[in-house]
């Protein structure tokens, strides 16, 4: 019980900081917005089919997530607060789950605002055809990104290259998530009969569980010397 309470306190603190500075959210959202504009100009005059649009959307989400993830430990690191957290009577994994859920939260909000924007710019309403299922896909996909990303972000924050290293480590690991969310989203948008949504849904759930478990088991080795 105290475990969950501590996680919530930690998330509340991060949300409060974010509401005050608006650092992460603004940069993530602007990134999505500007990349979308870039893509529109890059593809000008060309027919963008739905498959391509879904791929573009997820690639942009992934890049934007990296922005947020790479910032998530900065406040803990720069003033030594990570150690401050480590001397509070909570399990190490509280810090991981607090950060991972917080990141998931930020990513989901950015996605939720961006998706209608995509529909608008690409004049494509099929994106919003089944909002509930789409949210499920967004949730599981973003959970995958944030579960691995938070663990790797705790690593890269302590390296020389810092933010530069995170995408290099994260992208190859996240490829299975990218494949399955793209498949699922295409299925939701086009109802492609060649896609088996149950398989990809289960696959995504397995992926999320595996990496949440690995992070749960290894996080203390990342922060504790």
């Amino acid at each position: 019980m105290k475990f969950f309470k501590s996680i919530i306190i930690l998330i509340k603190k991060d949300v409060k900081t974010e509401l005050r500075t608006k650092e992460i959210f603004t940069s993530m959202f602007l990134f999505v917005f500007l990349t979308l504009i870039i893509f529109n100009f890059a593809f000008i005059g060309k027919e963008i089919n739905q498959n391509l649009m879904v791929g573009i959307a997820w690639a942009i989400f992934l890049f934007a997530s990296v922005l947020g993830l790479s910032r998530s430990f900065i406040h803990e690191k720069d003033t030594g607060c990570l150690e401050g957290l480590m001397i509070t009577p909570t399990d190490r994994s509280v810090i991981y789950f607090g950060k991972a859920i917080g990141n998931l939260f930020f990513i989901l909000i950015v996605e939720a605002i961006s998706i209608p924007m995509f529909s608008l710019f690409f004049s494509e309403e099929s994106f919003l055809r089944s909002p509930l299922q789409l949210f499920g896909v967004l949730f599981l996909g973003s959970l995958g990104i944030s579960s691995v990303g938070t663990l790797l972000s705790a690593i890269t924050i302590n390296t020389k290259a810092r933010e530069l290293l995170l995408p290099i480590l994260l992208f190859p690991v996240i490829i299975p998530v990218l494949i399955s969310v793209v498949k699922l989203t295409i299925y939701l948008v086009t109802a492609d009969p060649f896609i088996n949504p149950n398989f990809w849904m289960n696959f995504l759930i397995v992926y999320d569980i595996i990496f949440l478990l690995i992070a749960f088991l290894t996080f203390e080795y990342v922060i504790e010397e």
Partner: peptide
């Protein structure tokens, strides 16, 4: 420590890939 954690993450990713 970091390399070990990433070594585990990377290999766990292989079957999924």
């Amino acid at each position: 420590r970091f390399a070990a954690v990433y070594g585990i993450v990377a290999f766990a990713d292989v079957p999924l890939v």
